[in-house]
């Protein structure tokens, strides 16, 4: 079938501001949007800039606005979309070229929540730490995050205040706060409880809709809010 695309293009060396360009390519209905972009790049216009790698929704490279929604280009089939399919970069980050945005501020926020297991006790020798399946389940959902940025860039609170740490970073904090092995919960309070922390979340649920891994982001943020309210993340007395 013929598939029409409208892509928001921006070349920093030539363009003052982004402009739309239209393309048409021959595709199978079951092809991914990413296949269409690759066809355009390979056959029609080699100057199209986008990031992509795994092409099946696990690496998080190709989040973009597709028909106005944040989606991974490799996880949506062309047959499911009305045409022309409009493609834009994610909102709220600086556009570096076409669909490529500056992810550094996003990763800076990720790093700010200390996204790693904080250990105080010695590691056990020649064996694993024990963790019950029930304790493992408490943070299962937030381990799925692939850091694609779809949630953060769909969040009105983030658009209004780019300093907001954002849903993705809170998801990462949740993954450790609710891990029974983590011993540094209080180290994340300053960022999460601060003026640009979790309280900026207005439970709009855009993030839940945007997450390509099906993480219940708003629920995770709610659990972090509750833990902060109850003082569960305060330093041990």
């Amino acid at each position: 079938m013929d598939v029409k695309f409208k892509i928001l293009r921006f070349d920093p060396d030539k363009d003052k501001k982004p402009h739309w360009e239209s393309y048409q390519v021959e595709m199978e209905p079951t092809d991914r949007v990413l296949d269409g972009l690759e066809l355009i790049k390979g056959r029609v216009d080699g100057t199209l800039g986008l990031r992509r790698s795994c092409a099946h929704g696990v690496c998080g490279s190709d989040a973009m606005l597709i028909n106005g929604k944040n989606l991974l280009a490799c996880k949506v089939l062309v047959k499911s979309l009305p045409q022309p399919i409009t493609i834009e970069p994610m909102r709220g980050f600086n556009v570096l070229r076409d669909l490529i945005v500056d992810m550094e501020p996003f990763f800076a926020k990720y790093r700010a929540v200390k996204p790693y297991l904080i250990e105080k006790d010695e590691r056990p020798e020649h064996k694993e730490r024990l963790q019950s399946p029930a304790d493992r389940e408490k943070f299962e959902d937030t381990t799925k995050c692939i850091l694609c940025g779809a949630c953060t860039t769909s969040c009105p609170s983030f658009w209004a205040n780019p300093d907001y740490v954002g849903p993705a970073a809170i998801v990462q904090a949740h993954r450790f706060i609710f891990d029974s092995r983590d011993q540094g919960k209080e180290e994340r309070v300053e960022v999460l409880d601060g003026r640009d922390g979790v309280w900026r979340c207005r439970t709009v649920f855009n993030c839940v809709e945007a997450c390509p891994k099906g993480i219940n982001v708003t629920k995770a943020i709610g659990e972090v809010k509750q833990a902060l309210s109850k003082g569960e993340l305060d330093p041990p007395k």
């Binding site: 297991l117 590691r123 694993e128 024990l130 963790q131 399946p133 493992r136 943070f139 092995r181 983590d182």
Partner: peptide, 11 residues
């Protein structure tokens, strides 16, 4: 596991 990898667990 010590680094934090969330392996599935036995009972």
């Amino acid at each position: 596991e010590h680094m934090g990898l969330p392996f599935n667990r036995n009972a």
